[in-house]
Amino acid sequence: PLDETELDGTEPDDGYPVLLADWIKRDGLKCLKVKLRGNDERWDYERLVKVGQIALRHDVYWLTADFNCTVTDPSYVNEILDRLMIEHPRIYGMILYVEQPFPYDLERNQIDVHSVSARKPLFMDESAHDWHLIRLGRKLGWTGVALKTCKTQTGALLSLCWAKAHGMTLMVQDLTNPMLAQIPHLLLAAHAGTIMGVETNSMQFYPEASLPEAEVHPGAYSRREGMVDISTVQGPGFGYRIGEIKRVLPSPAARFGD
């Protein structure tokens, strides 16, 4: 919930923040992703405005707008952005980029998106499975790429190389990476040259999933002043220091071979 008006009494009482403002204050957040529907223009516009107003009250600098692959006509995004620029220019200026408004299957949905990227940087996410699709996206008007290690480290590096070689900007986003998955995710962001750090939210969605790893790498699993700290990540094997992590794994579901 964004504020008290969205509370319905079913919220968890687990010691963690519930409202957006409380997360901002606790973690010192400076950038927020706004999740949108992509098929309800009024709802999406009001959501952007409401999050933007909360952000302004709490000294958040940047927003990103994620339309979740449901838009089929660039005018949908353009009209929201144009209205925002006229009615709430400060919030419009805070939007760092627009993320994947259009269907993820780029080959089947070859939509010319130059009109959107003329307004704001336009980042591929679900469509960016490999560098061949990024090449097609650039031709259609996309200007940036969201890299994710969950799509494989090698794939992320190949996409990074092609995008950089062709003047596209980069972000590193996660799919709520917990446990060891968080470390290569943060390392990629640290070396990729992104436009604004890294997106990381596992400490918000399931904060206790990574407690054994956080004992060794506390800064990698908490956000303070809007940042994470990977200074403890060092040594071989992505710097996991896995021998020091007291992670108890369940019994394997199956065994193969000897």
Rank of each mutant, 00 (worst) to 15 (best):
residue 48 L to G: 03
residue 120 K to H: 11
residue 213 E to A: 14
residue 31 C to Y: 15
residue 94 M to E: 07
residue 145 V to E: 00
residue 1 P to G: 14
residue 69 C to Y: 14
residue 195 I to K: 04
residue 233 V to M: 13
residue 232 T to V: 10
residue 191 H to L: 12
residue 171 M to K: 00
residue 17 P to S: 00
residue 104 Y to Q: 15
residue 158 L to G: 02
residue 231 S to V: 10
residue 11 E to G: 10
residue 2 L to C: 01
residue 226 G to E: 05
residue 229 D to A: 08
residue 1 P to K: 14
residue 184 P to R: 02
residue 250 P to W: 01
residue 119 R to W: 02
residue 104 Y to E: 15
residue 191 H to A: 14
residue 8 D to S: 11
residue 205 F to C: 04
residue 22 D to H: 14
residue 51 V to M: 03
residue 108 R to S: 15
residue 176 T to F: 11
residue 67 F to G: 01
residue 251 S to H: 08
residue 162 W to Y: 14
residue 241 R to M: 13
residue 18 V to P: 01
residue 78 N to H: 04
residue 75 S to Y: 07
residue 43 W to L: 15
residue 145 V to F: 01
residue 45 Y to N: 04
residue 77 V to A: 02
residue 136 L to R: 09
residue 175 L to T: 12
residue 169 T to Y: 04
residue 152 T to K: 05
residue 184 P to D: 07
residue 57 R to Y: 10
residue 189 A to P: 09
residue 133 L to P: 02
residue 70 T to S: 15
residue 3 D to C: 07
residue 105 D to Q: 09
residue 135 R to T: 12
residue 89 P to C: 10
residue 225 E to V: 09
residue 82 D to K: 13
residue 153 Q to H: 15
residue 25 K to L: 06
residue 127 S to E: 11
residue 118 A to S: 15
residue 38 G to C: 11
residue 193 G to Y: 04
residue 49 V to I: 15
residue 116 V to W: 01
residue 84 L to K: 01
residue 85 M to K: 15
residue 142 W to P: 03
residue 110 Q to N: 07
residue 155 G to F: 05
residue 12 P to C: 10
residue 137 G to W: 06
